[in-house]
């Protein structure tokens, strides 16, 4: 059953790249991932950093000696730079770590998250 919560204004999200709010005792945020919105627990499972204040960017890939930008978008923690798949919450470089992710949407200029 859906349980949508208002976590901020779409204008703030468009300006900052994220909105963050406390919902049911948890700090969560919504980040823009390409043209979509994604809800993410605002606590990096590595060291507790504010993950939603990180950056969404294309993942750098490459074979030895070469660099490329993949189409895949990742959420990078603003503290230590660990990268997460914003769709699944999986840490891309440590299979033991995962952050909770949630559906999110914009309605009438407000950002909603489904916890």
């Amino acid at each position: 059953m859906s349980d949508w919560h208002d976590v901020g204004s779409l204008a703030d999200l468009e300006r900052d790249g994220h909105v963050v709010a406390r919902v049911e005792g948890r700090e969560v945020g919504v980040v823009a991932v390409g043209g979509d919105l994604r809800g993410v627990r605002n606590r990096c499972p590595h060291h507790g950093g504010p993950l939603c204040l990180g950056t969404v960017e294309r993942r750098v890939t490459g074979r030895p000696g070469g660099y490329d930008l993949a189409d895949e978008l990742v959420l990078r923690c603003p503290w230590h730079g660990w990268e997460f798949d914003p769709l699944t919450g999986a840490c891309l470089d440590d299979s033991a770590l995962r952050v909770a992710v949630y559906p999110a949407k914009a309605v009438d200029g407000r950002v909603l998250i489904d916890i």
Binding site: G49, L53, G54, W79, G81
Partner: peptide, 8 residues
């Protein structure tokens, strides 16, 4: 490659 500082 990105920043010497915490980005938050």
């Amino acid at each position: 490659p990105s920043s010497w500082y915490r980005k938050d």
